[in-house]
Design a binder for these strands. Structure first.
Lengths: 247, 247
DNA sequence: CGACTAATTGATACACTTCAAATTCCGTGG
DNA sequence: CCACGGAATTTGAAGTGTATCAATTAGTCG
């Protein structure tokens, strides 16, 4: 179950998530300190990174890949409660374990910090605590946004909402066939989408087919999605006019 | 729309939320500083404390009463995304407004801090930032817990979950007729419960009636609830055995 | 006591689930 | 390169839980 531990990763200064992760505000001195307590771990797609309620001896950031935060009931009903993309933080300073399973959806590389030294450093380094607070507040907003999706949206709106979110932060929008269009790959199986949306996988499949029939999206294979008109998709998601961003 | 501003409230040292609010870790010196930038505001039941996306010039803590965080779609569908009890924090340092409506459900007294000075003080006072991080992480856990309720639980389980949560933190459990039993008043209308649970008010009403018929709860009037066997209620909520606590 | 709002209850409709089968996708080995 | 096999996905048919629409009843405040 243990992932390989790599000590000779990239240095912080050329880390791809240097400016968005928990270390974003650190200056060079502080980075140097972090270097001392950090190590890299790799996980293969499907591997569990953290089991719920297990003791965690580290915290860390997703460097590459995608992971999910998942909660399950005894009878097997499962709800995804978070999607972890590069730069997102895993673990909770001040607590021993995660109440959720953390599972690698693709191959994942994590930048880990031993927990005690990291907590120690948080006390002494306001830049880290500040950034972590900011990130946590953002996650809280995202979680609440998602509560509206889960509680009040129809299946079709749920799918459109999920596609919007993925489209918005997928960095592949350069190859768009024309302005306003967006292209991306789904990082999730139908089942994972269902667990995120509080639906069954059959319903997910049906609604994706319906959106395709209606021309809101186009599919090549099962995973590659083209959105010809982002505004249309946002409209289907039921959010106000343009959701604040467009591209 | 402006609530009365009271300057001569209780001093921090005999504040009822002194040890649970954002100021919990402050020492006497720090409290003295806070005193200088704090003021009290009162709101009547039903009043809106903050309108979504309006500029907020303060942050603060609920001292007494109950408020809700609410998100709405254009067509009127509404989802409650948070329940604010005494000691809970309102507002986001570093942001101008709240993305949610904050509404007083009962009469509410808030301890407010002018935003700029508070943000300033956060920089200088690790005790405040630390406590705020801790509270935000707790809220994030609660929000994720609620995502499971919204996404995967049945109407009956949703009601039982809500009653469990209210019962757990209502401080009135002394008058329980016998050990294991719990008595409390519902602080929410059926409609507010529906908005919290992602249901209609009719479904809420039906499920409460069903739980009453089945002896899981007893009602006097519409608001006063007796839970003869807390374990039974937790069971109906679908949570594992005893949910970690039992009184 | 009467008017207004909150809550209950009933009947029907429909969105989503469930159970089942067919099809497509995709890596593996011949 | 193509054929094979298992998993992922799609599609179909029927069932069910919750929403919707519509009265009725209970509770509350003037």
């Amino acid at each position: 179950m243990d992932a390989p531990v790599l000590n000779n990763g990239p240095t912080c200064s050329d880390c791809p998530i240097r400016h968005r992760a928990v270390c974003a505000r650190c200056d060079v001195d502080e980075l140097e300190q972090l270097e001392k307590i950090k190590y890299y771990r790799s996980f293969e797609a499907g591997q569990t990174i953290v089991w719920s309620d297990d003791k965690m001896d580290f915290v860390g950031s997703v460097v590459t890949g995608i992971a999910t935060l998942t909660q399950a009931m005894e009878d097997g009903r499962t709800q995804m409660v978070g999607l972890l993309l590069p730069s997102d933080f895993v673990g909770r300073p001040g607590r021993d374990g995660s109440p959720y399973d953390v599972v690698a959806t693709s191959d994942v590389v994590m930048c880990c910090f031993r927990k005690r030294p990291f907590e120690q450093m948080m006390q002494e380094t306001p830049h880290i605590a500040q950034r972590l607070l900011e990130m946590t507040l953002d996650e809280l907003d995202a979680a609440r946004e998602w509560m509206l999706v889960l509680g009040r949206k129809t299946a079709r709106e749920k799918i459109a909402s999920l596609l919007s979110i993925i489209a918005r932060r997928d960095p592949q929008q350069m190859n768009a066939p024309r302005p306003g269009a967006v292209v991306f790959d789904l990082p999730l199986t139908r089942e994972a989408m269902a667990d995120y949306l509080g639906l069954t996988l059959e319903t997910v499949s049906r609604q994706i087919s319906a959106l395709r029939r209606d021309g809101v999206i186009a599919l090549e294979g099962k995973r590659h999605v083209t959105v010809p008109d982002m505004r249309r998709l946002l409209d289907e998601a039921g959010d106000d006019s343009d959701g604040g961003h467009l591209n």
